[in-house]
Design a protein around this nucleic acid. Structure first.
Lengths: 192, 192
DNA sequence: CCACCTTATGACATTCCGTGTCATGATGGC
DNA sequence: GCCATCATGACACGGAATGTCATAAGGTGG
């Protein structure tokens, strides 16, 4: 597909993470990042909308992955069950990325500018989930747009919480277990 | 208190809202805003951390208001009930601000840069709520920090949803009714 | 009434962010 | 081999955001 070095975005991401680990986010400039990656400043902004975006390269396709997982489920599956199963399937590949995700989270947590971008990405994930829920809505398991938005918000809340406890927990505990815990904790607030 | 014109921040906010309504957010520059408010660019950044922040002047004290409402409740009130009552009390003054809140939401919805800032403010609200829940935790209605964060996330989700449906609904419907609806909708997902 | 301190603002300089535009070189189709 | 395409380089430029010093307004204590 791409001709030149196909990993320009990945090189920029790696350079950015290195520099931020050394100097912090504020002290790291885009020219520094591009110089380390062997590129120019202008090229950086062709791959990323702004300086913050370089730290969210991996999140770009995740909404589509979750949406695809949802639409791949049997039509009879009720919305809430579909969210549980869809999240579990979409997140299973994350197991092998635990360490880089951990390092990236440390960077994001340290800077409000990155934290708000992370929240926006979660918002986009919720949008994609809501859209997918409406798309797979069938007579019998009907989902209105308003219900879909609520379900999607809840799903993202559960996902974020499960991801956090997974990253904070022992290295080998499966993410799926933390997802189940998060669903159970939430239901326990309203159930008996 | 303040000596010069005590309303510099308010003037800047009004000028910014006017200009954005006329030209859109991207086309509006900070020099334009400050010129209309009769101030200089440098003064803008003394009142607001960045260009986006001018649209969130009103949200600054809201986390403290909610936290105060929570801590003003009887210690016996269970956490979930405390959140319901606390939100209802803290939001009751919003009734008179419906129109300006509506205009502001239209501006924020139109721009991702403002939407992500709004999400960060919601995050700060959740932080304040979680902290307040832990602070009012008593033997009998014990709340761990992890539970508090979950409860706070749920409360913010409910608040955001109720605010949206309130703004989308008829002008005179009380916000408290939309809050109750949002709590009921959420519980219905997990209850019977 | 006067020196003094505090504080909001103005004025100026500077760095970096982000974008528009055109040129260049590499690639692949035909 | 010619040409269209696309990633990148090079250059220019306006705006965001900050550091620093100066100034004016007001309050305070003598």
């Amino acid at each position: 597909m791409t001709r030149w070095a196909p990993d320009a975005a990945l090189r920029l991401e790696a350079a950015a993470l290195d520099l931020v680990a050394e100097q912090g986010y504020a002290a790291t400039t885009v020219p520094q990042i591009t110089h380390r990656a062997g590129l120019t400043t202008r090229t950086f902004f062709r791959h990323f909308a702004d300086k913050r975006d370089v730290f969210f390269l991996r999140d770009r396709e995740f909404p589509r992955v979750v949406a695809a997982a949802l639409e791949g489920l049997p039509a009879e599956t009720a919305p809430l069950a579909a969210l549980q199963q869809g999240l579990e399937r979409a997140t299973s590949p994350l197991a092998q990325w635990r360490e880089p995700i951990l390092r990236r989270r440390a960077v994001i947590r340290a800077e409000d500018q990155l934290r708000e971008r992370e929240l926006l990405k979660s918002g986009h994930l919720a949008d994609a989930i809501a859209e997918a829920l409406v798309a797979r809505s069938r007579p019998g398991t009907e989902v209105t747009p308003a219900e879909a938005r609520l379900l999607a918000s809840v799903a993202v809340l559960v996902f974020d919480r499960a991801l956090d406890s997974w990253l904070d927990g022992p290295p080998l505990s499966p993410l799926s277990a933390h997802l189940a815990d998060a669903w159970r904790d939430l239901a326990a607030l309203f159930g008996p």
